[in-house]
Simulated scan of single mutants.
Amino acid sequence: MLNPQHLAAFASIVRAGSISKAAIQMGCGKSVLSRQLARLEQDLGARLIQRSTRRLTLTQIGEQVLQEALQIDKALSNIEQMAGQHQQEVKGRLRVTCPMPAIGHLVPLLTEFCQRHPQIEFTLLVEDRLVDLIAEQIDVAVRVAHLEDSNLIARKLADSQRVLVAAPSYLAKAGMPQVPDDLRQHSCLVYAAGGKVFDEWTFMQDGISNRVKVAGCLQANNGMALIAAACSGAGVLLIDRVLVAAHFASGELQIILPQYQLMHGSPIYAVYPARDWLALKTATFVAFLQERLFVDL
């Protein structure tokens, strides 16, 4: 198979009028171009240039090959320019995925990023499942989880703090808990998955740990369902702060027992496929997430 770079080198030699001049213009050694020309002639099984001490003369087949080589040389030049421009301008479409409960916090930031970079377009895939980034051509995934080892690149954005929340309507009816043990008398919304029920909540104050077993009207394996239940006034919820940030802003939920420390929630990562080079749009977006995402956590 012919090497396109050898064809481009052949076109450059003809345009320059000599191998020496072409080498100077291309910023490479004369011997490099000589070898490339020789290899091209060897691959074609034909001499393209008649060499003399004064000038280069194309053979008949050399003239025919030159017309195609010029097009290849132009194409390679255009590709280099496009690649350079691609790495200098933040533009194009970014395919991003995130878990459903995170959209309230992430979507406004996508809008802000578009305002900073008007030539960016987003496709957002909202999935609680673990998306195959390579198979589904995802540029960046925002994941709120402890990650397993993989061939993906992960950039940690933050440690999400856990908060205890309830709707004002629920608190008006059931009363505001004053200490963790009060939760035993409240309806608590509990996460349950994989055969495990996470119904023991641990609180820290002044170095003292207090573990409280809770119960309530609903267990679910989906954070979005539990958040919806809490917003509707169904009970008290222990949740990663990032997942309910938008509900604080809207007043749908408020924090309970803020004087107590809770265990850290899941770390938040920006994850993307490992590549030899990273597109500027992707690198800029990941840096933006590190700058802006969850800064209030």
Rank of each mutant, 00 (worst) to 15 (best):
Q290E: 09
S187C: 03
R116W: 08
I120L: 03
C98A: 13
K91T: 08
H6K: 15
L293W: 11
C98D: 04
D139T: 02
R211H: 14
V131K: 02
D159E: 12
A215P: 03
N78P: 00
L70C: 11
L40W: 12
Y191G: 04
S52L: 07
A166Y: 00
F285R: 04
A234D: 05
L66Q: 06
G235C: 06
M176C: 10
C231G: 08
Q259V: 05
R15W: 00
P267F: 02
W201P: 01
D296K: 08
H117T: 06
L262F: 00
Q115H: 10
L243P: 03
R184A: 14
L280E: 04
A135M: 14
E63T: 01
F113L: 05
I24S: 12
R54W: 03
E121K: 12
L164F: 00
M263L: 14
I49Y: 07
S187Y: 02
A230S: 02
S34G: 10
L2T: 04
G45M: 09
Q259L: 05
F198Y: 14
V214E: 00
Q205S: 15
S169N: 10
F10W: 10
V197Y: 03
G265S: 04
V212G: 12
E112R: 14
R241P: 05
R241A: 12
L76A: 01
T282G: 03
R95T: 14
N221I: 00
L289S: 02
P99W: 02
D240T: 06
Q60I: 08
V131R: 04
S31H: 15
A270Q: 01
W277C: 08
N78L: 12
S150P: 07
S34W: 14
Q71R: 08
T123W: 05
K213N: 14
Q137K: 01
T282S: 08
A193S: 09
G195C: 10
W277M: 13
S150V: 02
G92A: 09
I153E: 13
C217T: 13
G265E: 04
M176A: 07
L152C: 07
S77K: 09
H186L: 13
A167Q: 00
L48D: 12
K21V: 15
G92K: 11
D139P: 01
L293K: 07
